[in-house]
Write a protein that binds this DNA or RNA. Structure first.
Lengths: 217, 217
DNA sequence: ATTTTCATTAGACATTAGTCGTACAGGCCC
DNA sequence: GGGCCTGTACGACTAATGTCTAATGAAAAT
């Protein structure tokens, strides 16, 4: 029997995924998470999980940074990215950043089954609509590694930074002093190789949807 | 005879566009710009231009903010957006934000001719690959209006902010005091309806590639 | 059991960012 | 010309940001 963690903020969609899981095996062990905070808890509570089905657009998730964070917390745990996004570049990026595949939400049941089985066996599955080449980028990979090295608390602070909040506001939300947030910021900047909150925001926004159309004459 | 402003940072591609223009009329009046700074100059020097062919990925341009800026400087001047980007959402956004069409760089000569002729007649042309609906977003439109209302100097400061530069660095580059840059920042924040440089960066990064995949169950 | 490592927490201090009031030059209307 | 608006520019002041040092506690290594 396999244990799955289903991370998606839509109850209906989580349910749909669970239904498919039951077609794969009779009594799957399913853990659900509806945001990054609960996902983090589930990851530590269930270190024996076999697969994470991860939506990149949950509350607290910012594009690929969510994937990087999960890979950083549980490097050995296979992750299958699920998203409404259909763009080939996004699919390729997901795999490049450590995902065992990419599942568009428009996928049919058979594709979902195939993708999950592949991921469990350590293989990568992509829909036919995904293109061929994987351009890769030094800076992006470095950034992904940086995000993966963040602690849970630091990742949380980063997402709140990405909401445009002030240090003071973040401190209030997390019930710590502003000085603590500043210390986290400094640590985050170092790990992401940036020098200010402005550059940090720029870095992760590039990560979200940057298409590699920079290959120019 | 019509006067064109061709704004693209690739000399080869500018040349190619010029060749096509010559097939439309015998002696087109062509003005070229290779970055946003020179484009700004050309706009003021040639207020009698009939059409701008604008690449969204020039130095100094940040996605749609470049389009917004041009529309703000010369509201009556038709703009035809040229880009390597092929995504339907991007094409729709371009039109929604005031462009007279969208020309993928992979277009054939006939399409380019058609698009230019349409634009000159005030009509909108889109390639077949562009989808149907135009979702639109209140916030995005408001933001575009804000960018369009920026003065040239303010736009310049905004682009440098989007490079992750400090006020001090921007001041040095523009050869003014830091106090001046701060004043510009405050003005920019007001026009973009944000309260800090962090939020300003977030706002324009959303504008660049935000796909309306937020229509959720 | 002890050491080591590291996340988390903060206070003191220095730097950067942002607001306000103001000044000056050019364009425009009357 | 004399007002009037606007873009640009600046200094002074306040708020926010970032660095450094250091203490605590918890987990991992020895």
């Amino acid at each position: 029997m396999s244990k799955y963690i289903v991370a998606d903020d839509h109850p209906l969609f989580r349910n749909a995924i669970c239904q498919v899981l039951k077609t794969i095996e009779e009594t799957p062990d399913i853990v659900e998470a509806q945001d990054m905070a609960s996902l983090q808890t589930k990851l530590t509570d269930h270190p024996d999980a076999d697969l994470v089905l991860l939506d990149l657009h949950m509350p607290g998730a910012h594009g690929f940074s969510a994937l990087a964070y999960v890979k950083g917390q549980s490097p050995e745990l296979p992750v299958l990215v699920v998203s409404a996004n259909e763009k080939p570049e996004i699919m390729q990026r997901a795999v490049e950043f450590g995902s065992k595949g990419f599942l568009p939400k428009s996928s049919g049941i058979e594709d979902i089954q195939t993708a999950i089985k592949s991921a469990l066996q350590g293989e990568v599955w992509l829909p036919d609509s995904a293109g061929e080449q994987t351009p890769a980028s030094k800076d992006e990979c470095k950034l992904m590694k940086g995000i993966a090295s963040l602690t849970p608390q630091q990742y949380l602070v980063l997402t709140m930074l990405a909401e445009g909040l002030l240090n003071k506001q973040i401190a209030y939300e997390l019930d710590v002093t502003e000085a603590t947030i500043k210390a986290h910021m400094t640590a985050i900047f170092r790990k992401l190789s940036v020098r200010s909150r402005t550059q940090a925001v720029l870095a992760i926004s590039k990560l979200n949807l940057e298409s590699p159309q920079n290959i120019e004459s």
